[in-house]
Design a protein around this nucleic acid. Structure first.
Lengths: 154, 154
DNA sequence: TGGTATATGTTGTATATACAACCAGTAATT
DNA sequence: AATTACTGGTTGTATATACAACATATACCA
């Protein structure tokens, strides 16, 4: 008659949630994949997140922070601080008033050099992860990305 | 003849990497899914990560921090700090010397009460995410989780 | 039984992340 | 033109995360 539920009932609820939870699965996958890439990239002193941003910038030439956030699906404050770290490393630079509105960010020559060094390591990591996930897993990732892009068009 | 590669070459490399990169896709998905759940759970002042840990603990009754890390695929130091926050909220407690070896963690009555409140909200979030990902996306998540569990058996 | 090795947890440090609050330009309206 | 609304960026604060270094307890072995 008390308000506390017993452990049995809690377990039943937990079972229901744990059996299906998408968040847990996606988050665990994220940890594994991120750690694999980060370990591979650590000799270059770059993280997979930073690599992603550099790749994106090299692809489009230059972009405002806001645009970067749109494409990479990241919150603007996250972009702001990630760019700070990359600037400190000398991989990207800002044109126009720093901190000002509509500033433009682009990769530096050093950033492009890093990109070249990145390529084989990225390939190895990608291969390792693909092996980990299996071919079905890899297609599953692309399936999911399609769903994401439908809601977050570039 | 300089060592710097030109922007064209950089763009080509970037294209190759961006087109296929599993890490970017998984990480973006993680951000989206995590944010959706966290937004839904915020009225309860709990995060999806904390909810996951609470669910897991309720499911198994009790576990050492190390065991929690095994099951949830989290680094031990991450577990340590996440548990700190949950203890501060009163949702979990430790039996045995706190900080000592082989301590046991379990949900408190307050934790189980939270679990009950969690259930409908979790269901709504899960539904929302399932809709976002589509049925194909949801199966893709489960496919990926199978791959993960093959390498990280519980 | 004493000493070393191993397993388990915590703490220092750093990145990634987001929300809220804030600040500074730009645009819109009257 | 002046005031207001909006847009884009940064900063305060908090969680999640991991690696390295450390502390401690348990186990093993000589």
């Amino acid at each position: 008659m008390n308000k506390q539920i017993d452990k049995q009932a809690a377990q039943k609820l937990a079972q229901a949630m744990g059996d299906e939870c998408i968040a847990f699965r996606v988050r665990a996958l994220n940890r594994i994949v991120t750690n694999l890439y980060d370990a591979a990239l650590s000799p270059l002193n770059v993280t997979v997140n930073q690599a992603t941003m550099l790749i994106m910038l090299s692809l489009v030439g230059e972009a405002t922070p806001g645009r970067i956030g749109q494409v990479l699906i990241m919150e603007k404050s996250t972009i702001s601080r990630n760019l700070d770290r990359m600037k400190k490393q000398g991989w990207v630079e800002t044109a126009g008033r720093d901190g000002g509105k509509e500033q433009v960010v682009r990769a530096t020559p050093a950033g492009r050099t890093l990109l070249v060094a990145l390529h084989p390591i990225w390939e190895a990591a990608q291969k390792q992860v693909a092996e980990f996930l299996g071919s079905k897993g890899v297609s599953a990732v692309h399936t999911l990305h399609e769903a994401v892009r439908k809601k977050h068009p570039v």
